[in-house]
Design a protein around this nucleic acid. Sequence first.
DNA 1: CGCCTGATTGATCATTCTCAACGAGAGTGG
DNA 2: CCACTCTCGTTGAGAATGATCAATCAGGCG
Lengths: 221, 221
Amino acid sequence: MLIRVNTASRRPIDGPMAAVAGPRALCSEFKYRRGSEIFGEGEHAEYIYQISYGAVRTYKLLADGRRQINSFHLPGDMFGFENSETHRFTAEAIVETHVRIMKRCNLLEAMPSEAAGSKKLIGFVTENLQHAENHMLLLGRKTSLEKVAAFLLEMDGRLAHPDVMTLPMSRRDIADYLGLTLETVSRALSILRDDKILRFHGTTQREVEMLDREKLAKLDA
Amino acid sequence: MLIRVNTASRRPIDGPMAAVAGPRALCSEFKYRRGSEIFGEGEHAEYIYQISYGAVRTYKLLADGRRQINSFHLPGDMFGFENSETHRFTAEAIVETHVRIMKRCNLLEAMPSEAAGSKKLIGFVTENLQHAENHMLLLGRKTSLEKVAAFLLEMDGRLAHPDVMTLPMSRRDIADYLGLTLETVSRALSILRDDKILRFHGTTQREVEMLDREKLAKLDA
DNA sequence: CGCCTGATTGATCATTCTCAACGAGAGTGG
DNA sequence: CCACTCTCGTTGAGAATGATCAATCAGGCG
């Protein structure tokens, strides 16, 4: 898959990124097309990213191609923080995605002088760690149905409980996030559909209406 | 299981804890007996801990008792950092364990004034995150034999490749760390023994001699 | 139309879990 | 010292969850 990157603008940043980097930092807007790599595992970590539109998956691979997706990032989310010099995983755009990019060196320069930014940075890393801890519990100890229920509840919460949520990721992505195969994910979703816990809209099976969040929560352990 | 805690001493700290807390911070030494809880999930986070002797497991539970161990902590390791007010998991002494304890408020007071300490703290959290990312890959995508091989290699590395390593944790602990049952762990270890990759010493089956680290590394994906 | 991707569903397989039996040590109390 | 019990670990047989292999269908796009 080829990468197409366009610089869209260069302007002062605002929002959470500004809190980390300080008010003087600048950032650029870039676009990544569906499936393109934003950065690769082992690459030098030059930037941090905030999504303004689209969705991103971050993952690790085993030598034979088995994939574990760490997390999905949605608009507003930041990713790409690294304490070391290199990225510890790969980031890819799941769909057409617009990100704001800030140079990592700006971040590091701004940090020591700014106690609040430093605390914010610890907060971001801790948030990731917390998610990872919960996800280890899911991966290690939940059944396939519990995993899929937990995934739907997570996405529902992060998309602010819309009437119909449009999942940007494929069944394979969901499977690689939950440590399952795509068939098992599909079967679990069919069970939830047959139980009238959710309903699909449109043609792609990615538009999900949550009919019974309570019942779904009970299926998650 | 009853908790027995003895205050052993109160003195200036040194080592990595000092770098985080600043040179003026004090700490106490406590002892926890085998199986006793150091802190529980949801409890107020008052202290941070460094192990001077023994071993600790940190874990989360599901409502029905299924357990996922996040990590094992060995002498020298620090744990109990929380960004929030409460602990996100439970910590228990696996064997008789001695820890140095420092009040969390000292840490927070010392931090803003000390840029180096702040960076160290980010480093600790990042280290935990890195371990969690690798562990998610293991839990989601590795086979039982790969998991056990990875576990042995991790412990071998952290115990500085001793001739015979003495594992402080039971088969059940290993299983709950790897997302397996204790029987599956036992079977995997028997396979490695039969393949002359390792050998057990003593009577308890917890003293492991690594006979072929290269072969073991090839079994890990 | 032909070809591709993505999703569902079915049939079968296999890895791992569950249930069970057994043995070795450690600790206890007589 | 010897039962007795408890924990811990191993091993076996069978069950089951989830994986694999395969067929089908629908939509998008050249």
